[in-house]
Amino acid sequence: MDFTPFWISIKLAGITTLVLFLLGVPLAYWLAFNPRRYKVLLEAVVALPLVIPPTVLGFYLLVALSPENGLGALLDRYFDLRLVFTFEGLVFASVFYSLPFMVQPLQSGFRSVPETLVEAAYSLGKNTWTTLIHVILPNMTGSLLTAGILTFAHTIGEFGVVLMIGGNIPGVTQVISISIYDEVEAMNYGLANHYSLILLVFSFLILCLVYLFNYRQRKAISLL
């Protein structure tokens, strides 16, 4: 059994999760605490990957990132960077595709921190940054873990977007879900079953972890 597709999937999920942490925390913070009405537009954009078929997202990203068009041409000309059919392109697409899985749990995490804790920190002379780092984030660890785990797991399970942007290049863009499809196409049901079983058990364990963290956090809050 070739484990390269697993390795590519894990690398892709790990990098995507890291990038989304850096983007998702400020974005979710802004969405959670901004009272302006126009934020609903951004909320809708963030949630889009939940409802549109991954091939639609993949198609538009493919068009946008193609070296002949807009963004793709810009990246090609000025940074010598091609995102179509490359691993970097998979990361770029995955960041869009998994955005709601990072932002939404963080947003509800930010909202779950009692306002008086934040006000207490301000009353002690602390600025927004110090309050975020020392008070808000440490008191929503359950949401941080949920967001991280869901993003990672969701990226592992990607198919449509990855296929559109990355194609199916073994050792480069062939992730585990595409390998399974390949094996089924080639009538190698045994290998497809092994790959699938590993993914199934992995996904089940991930979900158990999420629910365990949430259970523990609810218990900790009820003790306060």
Binding site: P114, T116, L117, E119, S123, V135, P138, N139, A220, L224
Partner: peptide, 13 residues
């Protein structure tokens, strides 16, 4: 200022 709230508002972490 120093503020003391009815619901304590201590940092649980």
């Amino acid at each position: 200022i120093g503020m003391v709230f009815q619901e304590y508002s201590l940092f649980p972490n």
